[in-house]
Lab assay of single mutants.
Amino acid sequence: KFNKELSVAGREIVTLPNLNDPQKKAFIFSLWDDPSQSANLLAEAKKLNDAQAPK
């Protein structure tokens, strides 16, 4: 279960257009550290992506 959630969340995070590479890497490392938090980490990444969207 975690492997699928981890890969789905990881793929989504790397495609978020408004995150820079260090931010993406930080989220990916957090996913590896605790795969059970993949849904929460993906939600946080999406929030940050939205907040950094060009206005």
Rank of each mutant, 00 (worst) to 15 (best):
K1G: 12
K1Q: 11
N3V: 12
N3Q: 10
N3C: 15
E5M: 09
L6R: 04
L6E: 04
L6C: 14
V8Y: 11
G10M: 15
R11Y: 11
R11C: 15
E12S: 03
E12Q: 08
E12P: 03
E12T: 07
I13A: 01
I13Y: 01
I13L: 04
I13Q: 00
V14I: 14
T15H: 11
T15P: 00
L16R: 01
L16Q: 03
L16C: 02
P17Q: 06
P17H: 04
P17G: 04
P17L: 06
N18C: 07
N18W: 15
N20P: 02
N20K: 10
N20C: 09
N20Q: 06
N20F: 08
D21N: 09
D21E: 14
P22K: 15
Q23N: 02
Q23M: 03
Q23E: 03
K24S: 00
K24T: 02
K24F: 03
K25V: 11
K25N: 10
A26D: 06
A26F: 14
F27E: 03
F27G: 00
F29P: 02
F29M: 12
F29V: 10
F29H: 10
S30Y: 08
S30A: 14
S30M: 15
S30P: 02
S30Q: 15
L31H: 01
W32Q: 09
W32E: 05
W32A: 07
W32M: 12
D33I: 11
D33T: 13
D34E: 06
D34S: 05
D34P: 04
D34C: 12
P35C: 03
P35M: 05
S36W: 03
S36P: 04
S36I: 05
Q37L: 07
Q37M: 07
Q37W: 03
S38V: 15
S38Y: 14
A39H: 07
A39M: 11
N40F: 12
L41K: 04
L41D: 00
L41N: 03
L42M: 05
L42R: 03
L42K: 02
A43P: 01
E44V: 07
E44N: 04
A45Q: 00
A45G: 01
K46M: 09
K46I: 10
K46D: 02
N49E: 02
N49W: 03
N49F: 02
N49D: 04
N49G: 00
D50S: 08
D50V: 06
D50M: 09
Q52Y: 04
A53R: 08
A53V: 06
P54G: 08
P54L: 11
P54R: 07
P54S: 08
K55F: 12
K55V: 15
